[in-house]
Computed example of a mutant assay.
Amino acid sequence: MNQQMDQASGLRRMRQNNRVKVVAVTGGKGGVGKSNVTLNVAVAMAAQGKRVLVLDADLGLANIDVMLGLRVRRNLSHVLSGECTLDEVIVEGPHGLMIIPATSGTQSMVELSAAEHAGLIRAFSELKTPVDVLLVDTAAGISDMVMSFARAAQDIMVVVCDEPTSITDAYALMKLLTREYGVFRFKVVANMVRSLREGQELFSKLTRVTDRFLDASLELVACIPYDNNVRQAVRKQKVIVDAFPKSPAALAFRALANKVASWPTPNQPGGHLEFFIETLLQKQPVMQEEIRE
């Protein structure tokens, strides 16, 4: 018992020295620009010198590597099959951004068994690459895997656009996380809005429903303007913060990145599964002497 307590105190000291910010980016439905938000925030933070890792958690329809025009030889499926480690599948993007690619068009990755899910957790426990910020780009919908990734994060960014289905699906996502998994705080990104006022009205539409039916706290953290340059950047397989750095959307993404960087990183892991936080916080080896103290 004493040894376990000593070990825990050693891990707590490690958390204080090696804290990792973990943010899940989700949206309920597809087509709201979730991956675009993830990548632009990630690239903007990497350009500031942060060690940023993006996990493409859309395990069956991966697109993060395609959006950046990266050549990928191995992905998460190779980690799960035991062919390589998680560190070995990391590819480098703009400004030293690190990306863990998933696979595309593979049904088996969408329907991971309990053993395979455990294998993914073990893979993260062995990650050696130093990381400051982990951004998890989840799949659309409310599958068990989306729930797992969202619950494992310290902060959840819900991306919405001004469409009835987007608002409905975002509410369904938050309802499930709140009522079934005890997640009560959400940060909202109003994407592709025509004005700041439109973004605020979109947020009001969402909060009118959540305030009435959910015990949840929502915060509007960004209004990303509709910008034709986004489409042009996607065609170039670049992010808008690099391709058109002075465009309205690029400025908004950069401001959001600064805001994400300012969010506090708890000393203790949050959520229920905690495997991202727990293992990433332990990314530096512990000296045996420290454990025995």
Rank of each mutant, 00 (worst) to 15 (best):
A233H: 11
V234E: 14
P101S: 07
I224N: 04
M98D: 05
F186T: 05
L127P: 12
P285R: 13
A42N: 10
W263C: 03
E219I: 07
S125K: 05
I100P: 08
A42T: 03
A190C: 10
G69D: 04
G10T: 02
P285G: 06
G271W: 13
C223T: 15
E290Y: 04
L177G: 01
E198D: 09
K50Y: 10
A57F: 14
L55C: 10
S113H: 00
Q232L: 13
R13P: 00
P264K: 13
M67D: 13
G10Q: 07
G270C: 08
G27K: 02
A44Q: 12
T129S: 11
T210M: 06
S143L: 10
D56L: 08
G96R: 14
L11C: 01
A255E: 12
T38E: 10
Q237A: 08
D6L: 01
V189A: 09
H117F: 12
R194D: 03
T38K: 02
E83Q: 03
I240E: 03
I64E: 08
Q16L: 13
T207S: 14
P130C: 05
G105K: 03
L196H: 06
S9G: 03
T210I: 00
L220Y: 01
T279S: 15
R185S: 12
M67E: 14
L273H: 13
E116Y: 08
I277W: 11
K246A: 14
L273M: 09
T279H: 15
L59P: 10
I90V: 15
F124H: 10
D58G: 06
S247C: 09
N2D: 12
L218V: 00
V209R: 02
A114V: 04
P285H: 09
K29G: 03
A222N: 13
M98Q: 14
I291R: 00
L173W: 04
N40P: 00
P285A: 14
A24H: 02
D227G: 08
L214E: 04
W263I: 04
M157P: 02
S125V: 06
L120T: 10
G10V: 02
A243P: 06
H117E: 12
N40W: 10
F253R: 09
I240G: 09
T168D: 11
S143T: 14
A47N: 15
S195F: 09
R292I: 09
Q4Y: 04
P94D: 13
T103C: 05
F186H: 12
A170N: 02
A152W: 09
